[in-house]
Design a protein around this nucleic acid. Structure first.
Lengths: 200, 200
DNA sequence: CAGCTTACTGCACAAATGTTCAGTAGTCAA
DNA sequence: TTGACTACTGAACATTTGTGCAGTAAGCTG
């Protein structure tokens, strides 16, 4: 009962420390179990409990089942410059990656950008915040979207009103942008805001 | 030059998707390289470039060299009720855990609470946001702190002014709290705000 | 005390996987 | 044309690792 949990934690820690699951003998070595079958005995239990999953005949074929609270993370690319035409996912434009709790964001296609300016101050989004965005060209009215306006990335609230589509900043200093009458400006919607992360 | 990068990305994606690095044959299979040596040829280059590290005679012995950052996560307990006397870290009071990028928060003793109320609206902190807090009884002036006031958890900005210590909300509807003249109220500072996470 | 469960040992074996060595087609420069 | 370099193929071979089967000592349970 106690040993089982310790072994589970060892597997979890090994994956996070070394980037790969341990072998039966590595687990046995750690817990003083000389036979690989002693280890198998516990792995069978962990699998029956639904805590791990195993791939047959596969070296280091243990994977954790992300259940409820002990979830996984998504590695989301934080894009630096976002060039015209939409974000470029090549390594050259990545500023790095941030890890985000999987349960907080969806399972969609995500990227992150650093917020510039204060046009969304009213929604509690500040200069320097990191916005996690799900790629989605067709967001619904009322959602906060990330748009590319003439090579510049901005967050705005998207509102459909009659036939018009408006991008509304939440700051009285800025004016609405009407997508239906964009006078020569090049505007595209990159996605929908999924989360804001701010550090102090 | 191009193939090398693709192989590196494949390894990275496999680790993130399956939780373990691929074998030589798995990589070869993906890129149509029938000999394990064709794969080794590229892995040698990636290792020479310092992009990966290999463990000799080890199944799936490839690990990524995180350049610039370690890339780990902290599992931070999200506390539900915070009882008088400070947060209780027993399992009973945990609402769950959230995983936070290690590089964004410090290495200190962390916990998280859900923000209640709108007393910090002016600082872009809204009702429902998750606050990641570092335990610290002696925060400096100007920092946002998490305080326990008569069993209630609140965020306020701490300001030292002369000899007085003030807890200032950032919302005109609320009044400052002067710690030096707390009239019978039980106030303790739990820690300093490290990050805010908000999901939509 | 028999019978059951738990937690293993021990050994052989097979499958998966990394390593070594030899060789080759294609490209590019001198 | 020669030689260097790149990007592999192919075939052993050695190690690592998972699997199967038999057995056993220590605690319970009835």
């Amino acid at each position: 009962m106690e040993r089982k949990r310790k072994i589970y934690e060892f597997i979890r820690d090994e994956i996070s420390r070394r980037g790969r699951p341990p072998t039966l003998r590595e687990i046995g070595g750690r817990f003083g179990i000389s036979s690989t079958n002693g280890v198998r005995y516990f792995l069978d239990k962990l699998e029956a409990d639904g805590l791990i999953k195993r791939s047959a005949n596969t070296a280091r074929g243990i994977s954790l089942v992300e259940h409820g609270s002990r979830g996984g993370t998504r590695s989301v690319p934080l894009l630096g410059r976002v060039p015209a035409g939409g974000p470029d996912f090549g390594e050259e434009h990545r500023e790095g990656h941030i890890l985000v709790d999987e349960r907080l964001v969806g399972g969609g296609d995500l990227f992150a950008v650093r917020v510039r300016g204060d046009s969304m101050i009213g929604a509690g989004i500040h200069d320097g915040d990191v916005a996690v965005v799900e790629r989605d060209q067709a967001p619904r009215s009322g959602e906060i979207v990330v748009a590319l306006i003439d090579d510049e990335v901005t967050l705005k609230r998207l509102v459909r009103k009659g036939g018009a589509v408006l991008l509304k900043p939440e700051n009285d200093m800025y004016e609405d942008i009407d997508l239906s009458e964009m006078s020569g400006r090049n505007i595209s919607i990159l996605g929908r805001l999924e989360a804001i992360v701010r550090t102090y």
